[in-house]
Design a protein around this nucleic acid. Sequence first.
DNA 1: ATGAAAGCGCTAACAA
DNA 2: TTGTTAGCGCTTTCAT
Lengths: 358, 358
Amino acid sequence: MITGLTGNAGHGSRINLVRKRPSSIDVARLAEVSQATVSYVLSNRTDKVISEVTRSKVLAAAEKLSYMPNRLADGILRGKTLTVGVLMPDFGHSFNSKILIGLESEFADAGYSILIAHNRNEPELERHQVRMLMEHRVAGIIAVGDEATIAELPAWVEQAIKLDVDVCVVDDSSLDGIVDTVVSDDIAGANLAVGHLISQGHERIAFLGGSELTTTSRDRRIGYEQALQRHGIDVDPALQLGHHYRTDVDPDLSPLIVGPHRATAVFGVSDGLVGQAMMRLESEGIYRRDILAFVGYGNLEFSRYLWLTTIEQHPIEMGRRAASRMIARLSGKVSDPVTDRVPPELVVRRSSFPAKEF
Amino acid sequence: MITGLTGNAGHGSRINLVRKRPSSIDVARLAEVSQATVSYVLSNRTDKVISEVTRSKVLAAAEKLSYMPNRLADGILRGKTLTVGVLMPDFGHSFNSKILIGLESEFADAGYSILIAHNRNEPELERHQVRMLMEHRVAGIIAVGDEATIAELPAWVEQAIKLDVDVCVVDDSSLDGIVDTVVSDDIAGANLAVGHLISQGHERIAFLGGSELTTTSRDRRIGYEQALQRHGIDVDPALQLGHHYRTDVDPDLSPLIVGPHRATAVFGVSDGLVGQAMMRLESEGIYRRDILAFVGYGNLEFSRYLWLTTIEQHPIEMGRRAASRMIARLSGKVSDPVTDRVPPELVVRRSSFPAKEF
DNA sequence: ATGAAAGCGCTAACAA
DNA sequence: TTGTTAGCGCTTTCAT
């Protein structure tokens, strides 16, 4: 089982069977200084004055041994590490992956590492994962919003705060005011989308909605209604379709084309839903992208292949903001919990052509 | 700066300003046993016999204090942690995210945590990240293949092995035979794709290629040529297009439709490239998806919206296999480095219709 | 069946 | 300017 049996040159009385990595003691011995001096030099402390000779002796010794400090020791001393935990529902969704990109880049630049925890939408697993993060002594936890585990949040967040672990929630505003929160402004986004359709001359605009378990779909419906009302257009309940916020549902839009409730445009709460609906129309032979205008939400990768006008939420930026807020807190800046609503942006493509009557 | 100033009930001589988490010593005191006993109980050791009374006393005390073991201490003792590092070029690509999903699920089940390191395609950063992982005393490193940093691999891999850190490379076979490797079988995949087109009656099949910096694009070209030759079809260099393996390139396929080098089908080395090409045709008004058949590669999210026939690489499975191989190694199973070629799968959609002459 | 003590790698306080 | 010492939270001999 033991492969490299090199009893490392006598500094311990017992023979070590596993290769031990050089410690700061080894560096100290080689440089002929004390362990404390090594620590002073290697952490470039400005408050300690070190002579140039010792400094270079230490540096040379560290180099020779290819010494790498053990972050665990540091963490044990300080009670916490330079590590943050990221609790993810599902990085299969590019929206979440992009949040992660933003988080990572900010944290990496600030010297923090990221421990990931994937809850797979299972509340049970989430509790496990949070515990794991705590045992790792992470300095903070970033929680990415998710329908399934949203109910678990309050319980562990309270505990985390009690244990001096900072928390920031991204893409969910249910803990708004209690912890730092970064969300996309869904009401504004829906206003952009529907306002755009109205400016194109559309008045019969259908709404393709989803589950309102999270605030996402609800807020987008609110924005939809706001935009209509702002332009003096009545909200017609017959034009509100869809019940689930899942891409595996097949919303049937044919009534909008042939039925008594004709529409000239559709605003959907997610690109997935809209894409699905377009596919269905196309599949049924009533491929009429030229008579029904579409605006989706989320600017997913596939949307440009459908020439789909949509709303960009800037998830990378959301991640960045969440990270930098946490970094601020971790570096001692205290403030009341802040909620940051990232403004979305309209991305115009061919699917939102002007109404024919125009 | 210090918020919760609770000098925790006298067990230290100095007043602690920051709230300290309960340690195993605290549990021991409360349970009126020794620290060692606490350790025995909480790690459920089978080799130590503990009376039922002490066991429950300890458990109760731990519960009361909501004690959470400090993994750092454990790690410092054992020289390594129950953590593995994952080195990613870019989790903006869903292929990579999916690998991560597979990795995570296997590792989580085995009790390992994941520390992520994003090299952003920068070799310089990669060195930094590897160092960071080493300092964290990860037990192993999973490297996900990438053109830009591929050249860095040998250097740090050698060092890692020397430091007793296991390595497994996913989606790159350049270290084939030196470390465990998990890749997708690109030659087989291209054979599937082109074989399918041939079985549909196509003979004039164009190849849309990419940069051959990694083996990916080259292997897919080899598979393309193999399939043609296997069916007695000559390889026509005039039908090989494209130079870059990037989705921001606009391959012009119009010569295949109108020029002297007509083709009836196209096999592209990535769905992105093919999607781009289809978009361009559509954009130029020569939207003739019905006269040119397409097969892509990768089965990206958007592909189904283009009804694109493609090759599924099973990235989640690739991640799973990489993780379980590493777990095996970490639990002491030794063997020579293994290369695992995950078989790809053909996904047939409308874009690969039969040749008209058929 | 349990405990005392040493020690992992490091930094902070205090001495020299 | 540098060194000595203690101690972070834990597991592991070795005693009892």
